[in-house]
Design a protein around this nucleic acid. Sequence first.
DNA 1: ATGATTATTCAGAAAATACTGAACAACCAA
DNA 2: TTGGTTGTTCAGTATTTTCTGAATAATCAT
Lengths: 172, 172
Amino acid sequence: MDIDTRSEFVESWGSMGVLWGINRSMARIHALLLATREPLGLEEITEELDMSRGNASMCLKELRHWGVVRRVNLTGERRDFYIAEDDAWSMLFRIASERKKREFDPALSALQKVLASAGEEDDLVKDRLEELEEMLRAMDRLLQRFLASEGASRGMLKFLSAQIPYRSKKGE
Amino acid sequence: MDIDTRSEFVESWGSMGVLWGINRSMARIHALLLATREPLGLEEITEELDMSRGNASMCLKELRHWGVVRRVNLTGERRDFYIAEDDAWSMLFRIASERKKREFDPALSALQKVLASAGEEDDLVKDRLEELEEMLRAMDRLLQRFLASEGASRGMLKFLSAQIPYRSKKGE
DNA sequence: ATGATTATTCAGAAAATACTGAACAACCAA
DNA sequence: TTGGTTGTTCAGTATTTTCTGAATAATCAT
């Protein structure tokens, strides 16, 4: 694959990462793995993306935690290698759910509390906040519809997992 | 309105602000104006939210720039006062559009370039990236449908803008 | 065991972001 | 004009976030 094109993709994906709340390094690593056929080792990643081992290691740990990246062992290789999981949806799905829970839902319920306590005399405020609540609920529905589509595009699991000749490792 | 409830709303809205990419101070000011019947002056805002005049002034400038807050003049008052615009949608609409343009669209086109340059031999990568592209386009459609609903909830423009024959005083 | 290789952690450095406050500007009234 | 009041700006500061790199841990071969 064209190397310039790939690095442009890596950087774009890095910028977009903030949209779903992951930092640039994580998103860049994820992009690199997505765009690469072969599993990559820490060495290759730090080299290609020009970042420290420590940072890369931490990012990979988190990416694995989100279920977005998997660690594999190649026969004859001592080092660890990493590949992107096949369903990129899961990243969005999990991270978005998490953020929704942490940031969205509290605001929604606070708003509903305000609404409940707004006396009838507060017409202006009440109308405005009702509109706001409607907006949040619209977002909620939209988000849910989006998240519900997770799994829709599964099924093309003709993926690396099996075909990479690898041996298992304890403590995985 | 219950003061505790209101401040809880202000803080929640502040946290949620980061979701659409505005900072805490801006979102808090916006929330305060949304939850308040009367127009507020700089003084009241800095006092209630405990922030500097400079910060509040800058935030209000930006909020006006996004078309989310309006400046009004009260008869007999020399100072400026501020109210939240009636259609809170516009905030999301404009900010989301902007972010989409800056962060989303470049990633999508970079991805499409990668796809175009991925040779047929790269089956694995290609499949994976096609799935990714599909995901981004799904988000695109969703975002567009959401943004298209702007205007749907207009029409309750029974608002402050002109009427305000008002006189506010410190120590309400 | 020892040494060689690779992985992880985390205290501190660096960078990015947000905020303050004082200087200045704009405005008004007398 | 002057003096008083309010608004805006921005250089510097504070805070938060991200990254580095050296220390440590883990693993493997011999």
